[in-house]
Design a protein around this nucleic acid. Structure first.
Length: 334
DNA sequence: CTTATGACCTGATAGC
DNA sequence: TGCTATCAGGTCATAA
């Protein structure tokens, strides 16, 4: 279980009157890493001149949840030293060590706009930073229509890593097969639920869980602990390659994920199972199955992905799909 | 301790 | 055309 990794925006929204923020699209690890890379060249070294928090309930002060969010919590007046990522979390770290952790939830966006460009107040923009980088003024905005995401202000980098991120699992991009095997070892959950648990490994969401399981040839309803050593090794490798390819492509962009400059990623057109229910499997051409596993829509190939031990309470209704000879074999989103 | 489920939130889409 | 119902999913509180 991912039991509270320190701060959670949704929780913060419920437990106190802070701000909620919205992510853009379906940001998983590749989207966040791509975002980190596009923000880094502009933000690092930049000084924040002014911060406007338009919606208080999207932000929280970690460790002092009753404290109102002030400018310094949002790095006002500070110079940015580093942009760090762990799993789906992004942290803006000031040179004094203070950190602002950004989580995009499902529809959150972090974008850099020219200083003069106006943002509509009805555009779900919840926080605006005016910053100066090399003599040029920029605006960094955080918008999040659904407000599943949020901002977490943290006193120090040490607190960020040792406390706030402490309950997150190893980063999915670098976790080893041994480490993953250790996490799955005693778990009676289905493998898909385990992969989605940020305390097991950090960064995998519904899209890449399905993609990685397909590449590894493992049925999503298999019990985690029943996977063989070689299966775990294959799965680890599949996670790494799937995420790496997606980072290279700039992320998935199913709906509204865009990077810091507003560009959409292109990995969606490479999805092999996600969003392709009833379409032909790229390996065996049989129609892909779709079922709700671990409370999430899951798409997989019943022929290519083998069961080890099946999860008992898996409500499988593998919608025996009809093959539609649609012209678009892949579902990319404009 | 573990695991499962519902709630949160709003935009896009399907259906009438 | 316009309305309503449904779906999307990351993470939590709560329940079992």
């Amino acid at each position: 279980m991912s039991r509270g990794h320190g701060f959670n925006p949704a929780q913060a929204r419920r437990s106190l009157s802070c701000t909620a923020w919205r992510p853009p699209g379906l940001p998983e690890l590749p989207e966040i890493e791509h975002l980190r890379r596009t923000l880094e060249p502009i933000l690092v070294g930049a000084t924040i001149r002014r911060v406007r928090l338009l919606r208080r309930d999207i932000a929280v002060v970690v460790g002092h949840s009753d404290e109102p969010v002030r400018g310094r919590h949002l790095l006002a007046g500070m110079t940015i030293a580093e942009i760090r990522r762990h799993g789906k979390h992004l942290a803006i770290i000031a040179d004094c060590g203070r950190a602002l952790c950004v989580h995009l939830g499902m529809t959150g966006q972090l974008r850099i706009l020219p200083a003069h460009q106006r943002t509509s107040p009805h555009n779900h923009v919840h926080c605006i930073w005016r910053l100066e980088a090399g003599g040029t003024m920029h605006r960094l905005i955080f918008r999040d229509p659904r407000r599943f995401g949020g901002l977490a202000a943290i006193d120090s980098t040490e607190c960020l890593v040792m406390s706030y991120w402490a309950n997150l699992g190893k980063d999915a991009l670098t976790i080893t097969a041994d480490q993953l095997a250790m996490q799955l070892g005693r778990s009676r959950r289905c493998i898909k639920a385990a992969l989605l648990d940020q305390g097991v490994l950090a960064g995998v969401g519904n899209i890449y869980a399905d993609e990685a399981l397909f590449r590894a040839g493992i049925h999503p309803a298999s019990i985690a602990a029943s996977l063989s050593r070689s299966q775990v090794a294959r799965l680890t490798s599949a996670i790494h390659t799937t995420l790496s390819e997606a980072i290279r492509a700039g992320g998935s962009t199913i709906r509204d994920y865009v990077d810091a400059s507003g560009d959409a990623g292109s990995f969606a057109s490479r999805h092999r199972v996600y969003g392709r229910a009833a379409q032909p499997c790229v390996k065996c051409t049989k129609p892909l199955a779709s079922a709700s596993i671990a409370q999430r829509t899951s798409v997989f190939c019943e022929h290519c992905q083998t069961h080890t031990a099946q999860h008992s309470q898996t409500p499988k209704q593998p919608t025996n799909p009809v093959i539609h000879n649609l012209p678009t074999p892949t579902s990319s989103r404009p």
